[in-house]
Design a protein around this nucleic acid. Structure first.
Length: 604
DNA sequence: GCAAGGTC
């Protein structure tokens, strides 16, 4: 028998379909698997649920009060089976016993490589004779899957080592600093509550607090502009000075000369506004937060439900290029039966050219709809979640249709007129063709057209005034901007970024309010103290540095044990620096905790 | 009871 192991149920099922044509569904220990015939042999495909193993400390090391946290720097975590996936392991063992060949068909990324290794360990424990192969396909399509099985390869152990190295580092650092912080304020915490540290979650908090402090310390500066209603060729145009004046007096002196002038330039330029790139996870989350008022975590959770119910493709992806094996025409035909049917049919008739981004994660295609549905159907299928499910589904469908639509065409307009030495300008815009805006209303730009005038025409000021303005602080950190910054700094992965935001919310470090991230007193106190006592723990570049070092393991340029030791040594120095200030830290954190429990904002 | 990464 041939056994095929995939990372998730849906992939196992697709492989059975592509290799077997038809298949039978079964269950082992409650875990679904699919049996079929391939090349005249019996085969079974089993989908796991991500990792089946994890690192942990020993029982003694796991009693927080028995050993000082820093002792974990000298401990070596052990690889254990995850209790939550015990049934998957049982199913895998049971099928592996009968297998002559095992194909590790996990996702074609480093995590997939590690999970493949974990599965191989299980197989070898029960069946030493089985031949083990690794198959890699970049998209779960008939063509890619079949060709992958025609050229099976071997596990890439360096990728596996990279993942296991990361796991040990993250666990050690997380445990040491989480325990240290928690034990520092132990007497002020409610039972079951703790203060966590993590190389992703904490830099995220740092970014949010930094912005909050920038806003608070911002000193607004007054400045003055001239505004004028100007008549040009019988049209009235609202114009403003291109220059900002430091004082009212300077502005008024300049304004006094705004009487009769001349149009210096009048530019009317056509400009194409391109439709968005194919949708990946983080963009879905950002757009849901900004346009739908749905937090990144809720957006991904909802997308996951839509995926499981068969309405959209796999929602965790970094890919922004439609694979050549995805038949876009077929997707449009499928959508023709749903709420967005008329537009889909129009595209089918008119023809289309998809946009294209520049990233391919090698494991999943961009997010696209897999079924055309009406609003009524989604509400019925998702019950209480209906409203949100529809909002996300509608966004995915519209985004998909937008990527196949023509650009919007606008005319950008700019008039500059001079009055003596003073320059006034007006900017406007007019839509020529709506293009993809018809299906993607959130990006629609408003018209504010200017009249058509020409350089050299006379300009006459009808009304002139000096307006006082103030420079503004940077905006509150929105979830959307935070996700973009996390991506820029390489904090987390497509599938986990929203988790790191949510962890900060769960710990009482920040709140999400109308799409904005607002640090609590506790979050602010923690971040400020870390920036002061051990900035290396919270700087936004922490994760990227680690990731770079880990990449050396994949390249074969670094040995895992040595790298782990180096990073532990480095962080032990930061630990010592922090410990020296333990009293200050304790006071700061306890003050914040106390004031939060007093004002009822969830600190106690 | 810790993390981050898969996945449900």
């Amino acid at each position: 028998m041939d056994l095929i192991v995939a990372e998730k149920r849906s992939v196992a099922q697709a492989i059975a379909r592509y290799l077997g044509g038809s298949y039978k569904s079964g269950r082992l220990y409650g875990v679904p698997f699919y049996s079929f015939t391939y090349l005249g042999r019996e085969a079974a495909a089993l989908g796991l649920s991500g990792h089946i193993m994890d690192y942990d400390f020993t029982a003694r090391e796991n009693v927080w009060t028995w050993i000082p946290p820093e002792e974990l720097f000298r401990a070596t975590p052990v690889l254990v089976f995850r209790p939550e996936t015990a049934n998957y392991v049982k199913a895998l063992r049971s099928l592996a016993k009968k297998a002559e060949r095992v194909y590790l068909a996990l996702d074609a990324d480093v995590e997939g490589e590690a999970i493949a290794y974990e599965a191989a360990l299980v197989v070898k424990l029960v069946n030493r004779r089985a031949e083990i192969y690794r198959v890699r396909f970049n998209a779960v399509t008939y063509r890619d899957v079949r060709s992958a099985f025609q050229k099976p390869t071997k596990l890439d152990l360096r990728q596996v080592e990279k993942v296991f190295t990361r796991m040990q580092i993250d666990l050690t650092l997380g445990a040491v600093f989480t325990r240290f912080l928690t034990l520092t304020v132990r007497n002020s915490l409610e039972r079951g509550r703790f203060l966590s540290y993590g190389p992703c979650q904490t830099p995220v908090l740092g970014i949010v607090v930094t912005r909050e402090l920038q806003r608070r310390n911002f000193k607004p500066e007054k400045y003055y502009v001239i505004k004028a209603l100007v008549e040009i060729g019988g049209h009235a145009v609202e114009m403003a000075s291109t220059e900002r004046f430091k004082t009212r007096r300077e502005a008024e002196t300049a304004a006094a000369s705004v009487k009769r002038g001349v149009v210096k330039t009048a530019v009317y330029r056509q400009h194409a506004v391109q439709p968005p790139e194919p949708l990946e996870t983080v963009e879905l989350e950002r757009r849901a937060s900004r346009w739908l008022g749905i937090s990144s975590k809720k957006a991904l959770d909802t997308a996951e439900e839509l995926y499981r119910a068969g309405y959209i493709s796999y929602p965790r992806t970094e890919t922004t290029i439609y694979p050549s094996t995805l038949d876009l025409r077929e997707v449009l035909k499928e959508l023709a039966g749903g709420e967005h049917g008329p537009y889909a049919e129009e595209l089918l008739k008119r023809g289309f050219k998809p946009t294209r981004g520049d990233s391919d994660d090698g494991a999943h295609p961009p997010i696209y709809p897999t079924r055309g549905a009406t609003q009524g159907e989604i509400y019925k299928v998702f019950g209480k979640l209906g409203r949100q499910a529809w909002a996300i589904y509608d966004l995915v469908v519209r985004h998909f249709l937008a990527t196949l639509s023509p650009p919007a065409l606008v005319e950008k307009q700019r008039i500059v007129a001079t009055f003596g030495g003073v320059e006034l300008e007006a900017e406007g815009q007019r839509t020529i063709e709506e293009g993809y805006w018809r299906i993607y209303p959130w990006e629609r730009q408003r018209d504010k057209p200017l009249p058509r005038v020409e350089a050299g025409e006379a300009a006459k000021a009808i009304r002139v005034e000096v307006v006082e303005r103030e420079t503004e602080p940077p905006p509150q950190m929105s979830e959307s901007e935070l996700l973009a910054l996390m991506k820029k700094y390489g904090i987390g992965t497509d599938a986990t970024m929203q988790d790191h935001i949510h962890t900060n919310v769960k710990r009482g470090y920040m709140r999400l309010q109308r799409g904005k991230c607002i640090p609590t007193k506790l979050g602010e106190a923690l971040a400020t103290a870390l920036f002061q006592y051990a900035p290396e723990l919270i700087e936004p570049t922490v994760r990227a540095k680690m990731e770079k070092a880990l990449q050396d393991v994949v390249r074969g340029a670094a040995a895992p044990t040595r790298l782990i030791q180096e990073i532990k040594d480095e962080f032990e120095r930061y630990y010592k620096a922090l410990k020296e200030r333990r009293q200050d830290l304790k006071t700061t954190l306890e003050t914040a905790l106390k004031s939060m429990s007093e004002d009822g904002s969830g600190g106690g």
